[in-house]
């Protein structure tokens, strides 16, 4: 295995009691994250991007489970390959916070209000290292300096409610990176912050990933964030990957009508004033996807076969995957 992380045929089930089959919230997701890559995952609320990443950490919240036949493989630093879906809870704990760490959307609620910043940073160190207390203090201090927190000595003694959202997100990044993880999952790290702080946090993340050998999975619904931070991007729609390509390719030649719609609905300053583009309709709810393409009802290019059978994710040009009949092989030949 040469890549850092490989998801194969990942599905996530929401059980519906004993008699009914579970609802598949995420289905057939294949993703590959390379070493030191910045991988973007984009999609609207409820498309399954966040739970996919929780599954990578083995942290799906009750009652969600990883579906049968799913595979999440992770390459450790020592070359050992792990199948995350079959790890024991103890093995998963060794991985979390050490090899894979995560930062969340809401920094204000992501830290325990009862403990000081230092105690919460130290916890991560204590779970994975055997540093002494003074060593932990030094490490925490150095890490806060790296995430550019002013007055780090004081901040270590503070409680989360003393700090602003932007500061707390810096603390979260410090906690996530302190054990030098191989993979950082950032679940909408800037969504809850105001715009100027967003830019600072993204700059900081870009800067840090230069100095750490960490791959980043950036989950977001903001294409601007993707453009600024990522190399490769996967577009999620209704629990599936509908398009995947390099960031340049996506912005230059989006192939899936959904991706194209997303790009058209981005606002821009400058240029003439016009109504903002919107994608018509609403996302179908999980469990009601039908047999055809899941985007069919909202698609401008929908034709009869789109409703009859679901297209597969196919490579339409080197490194560019798309799940759409418009780009299905043999399409040009037929015309």
């Amino acid at each position: 295995m040469e890549h850092l992380l490989e998801l194969r045929n990942l599905s996530i089930d929401l059980p519906r009691g004993k008699r009914q089959s579970p609802v598949k919230l995420v289905e057939g997701v294949d993703l590959t994250v390379r070493k030191k890559q910045n991988f973007g995952v984009v999609g609207e609320s409820g498309c399954g991007k966040s739970i996919t990443c929780s599954a990578i950490m083995g942290l799906l919240s009750y009652p969600l489970t990883v579906g049968a036949g799913s595979s999440i493989r992770f390459l450790k630093e020592n070359g050992e390959e792990l199948e995350i879906t079959s790890l024991s809870p103890a093995e998963l704990r060794k991985l979390r916070g050490k090899d894979i760490s995560m930062i969340f959307q809401e920094p204000m609620t992501a830290l325990d209000p009862m403990y000081t910043i230092e105690e919460q940073i130290n916890e991560t160190l204590r779970f994975h290292t055997s540093l002494s207390k003074p060593e932990m203090h030094e490490a925490a201090l150095a890490m806060l300096k790296k995430v550019k927190i002013p007055r780090p000595e004081q901040i270590l003694k503070d409680y989360p409610h003393h700090l602003s959202g932007g500061m707390l997100q810096r603390v979260m990044i410090a906690i996530a990176l302190i054990n030098n993880p191989r993979l950082l999952i950032a679940d909408e790290p800037t969504t809850a912050l105001d715009v100027t702080i967003q830019a600072q946090i993204l700059d900081l993340m870009n800067e840090l990933r230069e100095s750490y050998d960490t791959s980043v999975i950036m989950i977001t619904h903001d294409l601007g964030v993707i453009a600024e931070t990522c190399e490769e991007v996967a577009v999620f729609y209704a629990g599936q990957v509908v398009e995947q390509a390099s960031v340049e390719e996506i912005f230059r030649a989006a192939a899936h009508p959904y991706t194209a719609g997303l790009l058209k609905s981005v606002t821009s300053l400058g240029g003439e004033e016009k109504m903002l583009y919107t994608i018509q309709g609403a996302v179908p709810t999980a469990g009601n996807f039908g047999q055809g393409c899941r985007f069919a009802d909202r698609c401008e290019y929908c034709e009869s076969r789109c409703r009859e059978s679901a297209p597969a994710l196919t490579e339409i040009s080197p490194g560019h995957l798309c799940r759409c009949w418009l780009h299905a092989p043999g399409k040009e030949a037929a015309q």
Binding site: M57, R93, F104, D112, H128
Partner: peptide, 21 residues
């Protein structure tokens, strides 16, 4: 709450997540 997920994401055991936090 979110911070329990953070604690678990840091690699805490269930015992630590439940009793300490």
């Amino acid at each position: 709450q979110d911070f329990i997920k953070t604690v678990r994401a840091k690699g805490a055991s269930e015992r630590v997540a439940i009793f300490r936090h």
